[in-house]
Amino acid sequence: MSVLGEVSGIARIEDAPLESLLDALRAYRQRQARFITASCLDRGDRFEILYLFDEDLRTVAVRTLLPKGAKLPSATGVYLCAFLVENELQDLFGIEVEGLHIDYSGKFLVTDTFDAPPLLKQTACELQLPKENPS
């Protein structure tokens, strides 16, 4: 599967392999870029994750490719505010994040009534009734 090419509105996308992801993020931290959020795309056998930063009203991004099943190193050691979005990645994409400071272990937004993480491409998500009724 391909990755995103030019994205209108993002000034620069820098590719960082998984091993040096945290170093790349640290470089932004040192330049005092404001962390915006991370965004994840399901690309078949891997995830494409973009970390977005603000530099004087311009958006710049760091991209990493994560094979499915691999663990993602947590960015909370660099930017604490990443804990919200990383918990969301755990919930909605089923990505295991390693070293997360505040970990809701997959129960941040959704309750555990889904068979598969809802934002994955193969997950059919119609209005499905909960597996068992709590009452």
Binding site: L109, V110, F114, P118, C125, E126, L127, Q128
Partner: peptide, 13 residues
């Protein structure tokens, strides 16, 4: 009736 949130997986409708 659930309204606009028909395709939302987390809604009871």
């Amino acid at each position: 009736s659930g309204g606009v949130f028909q395709n939302c997986y987390n809604c009871m409708g």
